[in-house]
């Protein structure tokens, strides 16, 4: 249970980072932290005490496997996270090129 709680703490750290920080790069780091918190939580949901990796091998009978589905899904989620991070990072670099700053309070061409 405490592990689940720690995931929540990590998620909150990421949210705090997105909401409070003024630097674009720190906001990107915040997004990454929230994504990792969710992924970690997903892996923990499928974990079993003293479980083994769910890999079928020759001449071996595996009795106590962990749930393989969350692991497969987390891999997908990590790849999606990579795509988002790469895209946002390249947008942030372009923003820096146009505005000359990473400070979001100075990037205000749009009203509202």
């Amino acid at each position: 249970m405490s592990l689940y709680f720690l995931c929540l703490v990590l998620f909150s750290v990421g949210l705090y980072c997105i909401l409070r920080k003024r630097n674009l790069i720190k906001i990107i780091i915040g997004i990454a932290i929230t994504e990792y918190a969710v992924n970690l939580f997903f892996v923990l949901v499928g974990y079993k005490m003293h479980g083994r990796a769910p890999i079928h091998a020759e001449d071996q009978a595996i009795l106590n496997m962990v749930d393989p589905l969350p692991q497969a899904l987390v891999l997908t989620a990590i790849v999606i996270g990579l795509a988002i991070t790469a895209l946002i990072a390249s947008i942030a670099i372009r923003v820096y090129e146009k505005y000359g700053t990473f400070d979001i309070t100075k990037i205000r061409k749009l009203k509202g």
Binding site: L24, R94, V95, K109, L110
Partner: peptide, 8 residues
């Protein structure tokens, strides 16, 4: 400028 800011 506007597009990049909005997209971010």
């Amino acid at each position: 400028q506007e597009e990049l800011e909005a997209s971010f």
